[in-house]
Amino acid sequence: MDKYFEGKRILVTGGCQGIGRGLVLELWRLGANVVTVSNNAENLNKLKEEYPSIEIVYVDLRNWNKTREVIDALGVFDGLVNNAGIAIIEPFLECKKESLNETLDVNVNAVINVSQVVAKKMIENKRKGSIVNISSQASKAALKDHVAYCASKGALDALTRVMALELGPFGIRINTVNPTVIMTEMGRKVWAEPSKSKEMLSKIPLGRFGEVKEVVNAVLFLLCDSASLISGVQLPIDGGFLAT
C-alpha cells in the first residue's frame, strides 16, 4: 500500500480537520500529492503552515458553479475522498426546510458535483481511479434528532451504488465507509459526558467508539489496488453497531 501512493494525486474534501485531516496527513506521509478543499480558511492556512507541500484550496461546496470551476482547474486525480459533511441536529417534527436543503447540498449534491468533474477527467486521461465517500452508520440505523443527516447519508449510499454501476466500465471504483462515532477533537468534546455516551456505547459490541486512524486505514485500503475488485460497497467501521 505504501508504494501505491507515491506520486499519486489524491483530492480530499473537508481535509483540514477531523477524519479529513487525518487522511490528508497519512496520504502525505505515504508519498501522495495531496490536495484538499474546504470552506474553513483558518484551518486550511494552519494546515499549510504545518505542511507546506500539501496543496490547499478554498471553496464553499454549496456553490455548485464555483465548485465545478475550482475542481476543474485542479487537473487530473488518481483518487478522490468525499469527506466534507455537516450534521444539523433537529428532531423530525421540527426539521426545517433550510436545514434539510443545506445538509443535502453538502452531504449529497457536492459529492455529485465534485465527483462528476473528477471522474470525467479520469475517463478522459484513462485513469482507473478510486473514489471513497464518507458515509455513516446513520445511513443504516435511525439516530434520534438526526433526520436530515440520516436522510443525506442514506442518499449517499444509494448514490455510491449508482456511481459504481455507471463508472465501473471505465475502471473507476466507488465505495463508502460508514463509521460510528469517531473520536475526533470535536467527537471527544461531544461524547465525553458518560450520561450521553452510555446509550450509544451499549449498542456497540466492541464497547468503544472509533479512532480517526481506524477510518483512515479503511479509506486507504479502498483507494489502493489492494481493493481492486471492491466497488459499490458500504463498509461499516462501527465495532459491530449494525450487527445488533
Results as ranks from 00 to 15, higher is better:
R161I: 09
K153W: 12
N178W: 04
P169H: 03
K213S: 15
I134P: 02
G154M: 12
S195C: 01
G187V: 01
V117C: 10
E214G: 07
P169K: 05
Q137Y: 05
R188K: 15
G168M: 10
S130R: 10
K203L: 12
G154E: 05
S152D: 11
L235P: 00
R208H: 15
E199I: 05
E124G: 03
A119I: 08
M183T: 02
V216M: 11
R188F: 02
R208V: 10
D145Q: 12
K120W: 00
Q234L: 04
S231P: 04
V118H: 05
I182Q: 01
A119G: 02
K153S: 13
N217F: 00
D157P: 00
F221C: 06
I204V: 15
A155C: 12
D157Q: 12
A227I: 12
L206N: 08
S197Y: 03
A218I: 06
G232A: 14
S136D: 08
S202M: 10
T184C: 05
P179W: 03
E193C: 02
K121T: 08
L206E: 11
A138C: 14
E124F: 04
M163R: 09
L206A: 04
V181I: 15
V181F: 10
P205S: 09
V181E: 06
T176D: 13
L229T: 14
S197W: 08
V162A: 12
Q116T: 10
D145H: 13
L223M: 10
S202G: 11
W191E: 02
T176V: 14
V181M: 10
L229E: 11
L165W: 04
N175L: 09
G210P: 13
V132M: 00
L156W: 01
Q137M: 08
C150N: 15
V117M: 09
N133R: 09
W191T: 04
T180L: 06
E185D: 15
R161D: 04
I182D: 04
S231V: 05
L167W: 14
I134D: 03
S202V: 11
A218M: 09
I182C: 01
I174R: 02
V181C: 06
A227V: 13
P194N: 05
G171Y: 02
M186Y: 08
E166H: 10
G168K: 08
S197L: 01
E166V: 14
M200P: 02
T160I: 09
R161C: 03
E185C: 03
M200G: 00
A192T: 07
A138K: 09
F170T: 00
D225I: 00
L159T: 07
E166R: 10
V233W: 05
S197I: 03
A155L: 14
A218D: 08
V162D: 01
M183K: 14
S228M: 07
T180N: 14
E185Q: 14
A218L: 07
E166A: 09
I123E: 00
A141Y: 00
G171P: 03
T176Q: 11
L220P: 02
I204F: 04
K213T: 13
V190E: 10
L206W: 13
S228R: 08
R208M: 13
T160F: 05
E199A: 11
L165I: 14
